[in-house]
Structure formats: structure tokens, C-alpha cells
């Protein structure tokens, strides 16, 4: 699989090409539409929206909704804005991504380079964990977090995300290391390098592309999670997504759509940024895993 452009043998006529460009453009508009709506409406006063001007550019430009969404909007019962929840998410995402990626790298290394009987079954067991409907683990997980004293804490959420993310990271690293020449491992063994030395000195320096994939994937998934956050977070560990939902669904008072849009962008910003900055490495890394190392 390669997503890079290549010469295609297919030729199309001029009318057809124009049509194709039109369709592609139409869908560019379709995919951009919600983002446009969010951005323009987050910088206009509320009256402009309620007055039927949702699609218009702002007549009066204001950053007031952003400021409010960030620091003073009513979330639940406290008028704190989204900022504390933003930091909650960061505090949860960073360790969860780091731990699950390290575990995935080690698992991938063992499963490809130190194969043992039934290793594929072990991998299958780990992998299937990413695909279960998480509703099936909600009840026991809540109980377990309580038993461990992690109920309602950020570390509880870190644990949850590590457990249900390690399947993906293992998958990525396993596929990547599977095409990493085993002869290199053998050469290093003869050279006298041990298990961790081989990992540290030989494999890890070549793992950049897949580490990027794993980190982006985990970051996006964990940042965007709602179910676990809503189920297990305490008042002071709620992540951004849960807070945003509370902000938008609040049933009291005037609906401040502009603040909601600003909040939505704030919640989307980290993952969008990662996608724009590193998205191309993500695709490249994924392909490197499936073609060859």
C-alpha cells in the first residue's frame, strides 16, 4: 500500500475531468462546512447568530466568546470556563500516551523478534481488546477503580486508557517490527547484545516513524474519548470532552451558541493541530509499516 501519487494509466476526457473537479470541490465544501460554521460563529456576538446570520461572516468581530468559553462559562455548577478541564485532559493524555506507546513498542518487539509458541494467540487476545464495545467493561471497571483507590482520579483514567489502547500500539509496532530484518537481531545477539540492548541500540533508533503513528493515534483517541471520561472522572478530573458536552447541553439560561462553538474549537484544537502538523508523518509511518521497513 502506498498513498504517494504515482502515474496512473487511466486517462479521462476534458468534460469528465471538469466534472470530477466539481464533485471533489463540492465535497471540500461539505467537509469544511462545520469547521466554517464553528469558526465564524465563535467570533460574532450572539444576536448575529440568532438573527439568522449563521452562515455570514461576522459583522462585529469579537473574541469575547473565546474568552468566556476558556475562563468564565458555566460548566456544571461552577463558572470556571473550560480551562481547568483542558489541563485535566493534558494531565491524562500525556502519561497515557507515553505508557501505552512504550508498552506497545516492547510488546511488538517481543511478538516479532522473540517469538514463542502461541504468540499469535497472545497477540490476538491483546488486539481484540481494542474492538470490544466498552459498555461491557464499564461496570466492573468502576468497581475495580474503586477497589484500587483510583475512582474519580486522573490516574484512574490513565490506567483505563492504557489498558484499552495497548492493543492498537502493539498492533502498530508489531506490524512495523515484523518487516524489520530479523538478521539484525541475530547479528546483535552474536555481537553479545542482550534483550534490552538490542531493543535500545538497534530497534529503537529506527522506530521513529511508527512511534509517531502510535503517539498521534493514542493522543487523538484519548483526547477525544467521552465514554470513559463521563463514566469514571471525578469533578476535578473531568476531561475536555465531558466539560464541552456539559457546556453545550446545559438546560438553564440562554444558549450561548457562540460560546459553544468557541468551546468546541478549543476542544478540537490540540488534535487538529497534531493532525495538521504531523498528519503526513502519520500516513507515511503507517505505510512504512505495511510496505517495508
Amino acid at each position: 500500500m502506498s498513498i504517494a501519487t504515482q502515474d496512473t494509466a487511466i486517462r479521462t476526457g476534458r468534460v469528465m475531468r471538469t466534472l470530477i473537479y466539481l464533485v471533489l470541490l463540492l465535497f471540500v465544501l461539505f467537509y469544511m462546512l462545520p469547521l466554517y460554521v464553528m469558526v465564524v460563529n465563535s467570533v460574532k456576538p450572539l444576536e448575529e447568530i440568532t438573527g439568522g446570520g449563521m452562515m455570514n461572516l461576522p459583522q462585529v468581530f469579537t473574541l469575547e466568546p473565546w474568552a468566556k468559553a476558556w475562563s468564565s462559562a458555566q460548566i456544571g455548577v461552577e463558572p470556571t470556563g473550560l480551562s481547568p478541564y483542558f489541563w485535566n485532559s493534558i494531565k491524562m493524555v500525556v502519561p497515557a500516551v507515553a505508557i501505552s506507546t512504550v508498552l506497545g513498542a516492547l510488546n511488538g518487539y517481543v511478538l516479532t523478534k522473540w517469538r514463542f509458541k502461541y504468540d499469535t494467540i497472545v497477540f490476538g487476545l491483546i488486539l481484540f481488546a481494542c474492538f470490544i464495545p466498552f459498555q461491557i467493561v464499564l461496570i466492573p471497571m468502576a468497581k475495580m477503580l474503586g477497589l484500587m483507590g483510583l475512582a474519580g482520579t486522573t490516574w484512574g483514567l490513565v490506567l483505563v486508557h492504557v489498558v484499552y489502547g495497548v492493543g492498537f500500539t502493539t498492533l502498530y509496532f508489531r506490524n512495523y517490527y515484523a518487516v524489520f530484518p530479523t538478521e539484525l537481531i541475530r547479528a546483535a545477539q552474536i555481537d553479545g547484545a542482550g534483550f534490552f540492548q538490542i531493543f535500545w541500540r538497534i530497534l529503537l533508533p529506527s522506530s521513529g516513524p511508527i512511534a509517531v503513528v502510535s503517539i498521534i493515534w493514542q493522543f487523538t483517541n484519548i483526547w477525544n474519548d467521552f465514554l470513559f471520561g463521563a463514566s469514571f472522572a471525578g469533578a476535578d478530573s473531568q476531561p475536555m470532552t465531558v466539560a464541552l458536552n456539559n457546556l453545550v447541553q446545559a438546560s438553564h439560561g440562554v444558549k450561548e451558541y457562540n460560546v459553544h462553538f468557541a468551546g468546541a474549537i478549543l476542544a478540537a484544537l490540540p488534535t487538529l493541530l497534531v493532525y495538521i502538523v504531523a498528519g503526513r508523518y502519520f500516513v507515511r509511518g503507517l505505510m512504512a509499516g505495511s510496505v517495508k521497513g
Partner: peptide, 19 residues
């Protein structure tokens, strides 16, 4: 075409809800 994949369903839901 791909960027919506990077968003949270909560963000997507909010945007479409009001649109």
C-alpha cells in the same frame, strides 16, 4: 477530507447540532 477523523464526536455533534 480526512481532518474530521481527528475531531472528537462531541465536537462533531456540537457543530452539527446547532447547524
Amino acid at each position: 477530507y480526512l481532518y474530521p477523523m481527528a475531531l472528537s464526536f462531541i465536537v462533531t455533534g456540537t457543530a452539527w447540532k446547532w447547524f
